[in-house]
């Protein structure tokens, strides 16, 4: 018998979040499955990015933010006091809407993370850079110009460079916040293919407002919704097939059939 029990990368319990007095997330409880792609969908402004940033504590950078509840990553609550946030962010990498390559060479962009974490040996760095660019399916295009500025790459290439840059620190999870919203369809296609390839070794959580994208690439889908002047709540969560073909909540159905949002 081949029983495969799904493991969870994250277990989020009763997560509440305030920006100053404004409550943005209410009582979110969700399990994020390991080595799968989970899509977070919902109308814009409903709190998808806010939620995503709770998973690697990127929200810590924002003044006046307050978070309650628990986020277990590999069994440990990352909001516990002794958490090493730097280590957490190494293990839980993040891709943003804008690729934001550093204004340095392609090589230095990818080597940035490993260098942060103390790798100095040139051969070792060469290896990591090549390996990461290959995994991000960018190696062939840039192998002859590793010393050129990363700013010279196209938008789609820059986003794959951003992925390579994250892969270089050997994360376990990759959070992606609308990674394709600034890209043309061909580049979007490449990133989506890449995500499916990466799934074997990484847990991926992607925020997208593109329903087709969620349906195409993800295994699980979570629908967040902030109803009028209310904080965002998790309306429905399940296997992507079920959410898109047989939603249980009328609000989910309305959203995916485009009746609001």
């Amino acid at each position: 018998m081949n029983i495969k029990i799904k493991e969870n990368a994250f277990e989020v319990r009763n997560l509440n979040l305030w920006y100053g007095k404004h409550k943005a997330l209410e009582d979110i409880t969700i399990d994020i499955v390991k080595n799968a792609i989970t899509a977070i969908i919902g109308p814009s402004g409903c709190g998808k990015s806010t939620f995503l940033r709770c998973l690697n504590r990127m929200n810590d950078l924002i003044d006046g933010i307050r978070i309650e509840g628990k986020v277990y990553f590999e069994g440990k609550n990352i909001y516990d006091e002794g958490t090493d946030v730097v280590l957490l962010r190494k293990r839980v990498g993040m891709i943003f809407q804008q690729p934001n390559p550093f204004p340095m060479s392609i090589y230095d962009n990818v080597a940035f993370g490993p260098r942060l974490h103390g790798i100095r040996d040139r051969n070792r760095l060469d290896e990591i850079v090549k390996d990461s660019l290959e995994k991000a399916s960018l190696w062939k295009e840039v192998k002859n110009k590793l010393n050129e500025s990363a700013l010279s790459l196209s938008g789609g290439q820059q986003q794959r460079l951003a992925i390579a840059r994250v892969l270089a620190v050997e994360p376990e999870v990759i959070l992606m916040d609308e990674p394709c919203s600034a890209l043309d369809p061909a580049s979007t296609q490449r990133i989506e293919d890449l995500m499916v390839e990466l799934k074997a070794n990484y847990t991926i959580v992607i925020v997208t407002h593109n329903m087709q994208q969620a349906a195409r690439v993800s295994d699980f889908t979570a629908f967040l919704l902030a109803e009028e002047n209310e904080p965002a709540k998790l309306i429905e969560y399940g296997e992507t097939g079920q959410i898109f073909t047989n939603p249980k909540d009328i609000r989910t159905e309305n959203y995916i059939t485009g009746r609001f949002g």
């Binding site: 990127m58 730097v86 962010r89 804008q98």
Partner: peptide, 20 residues
């Protein structure tokens, strides 16, 4: 965005300031 990217890769504040 540069700072965010740097923190996202696990940089400390000082690393972000000095290297980015």
């Amino acid at each position: 965005g540069y700072k965010e990217a740097s923190y996202g890769l696990g940089a400390t504040k000082w690393q972000t300031i000095s290297r980015v």
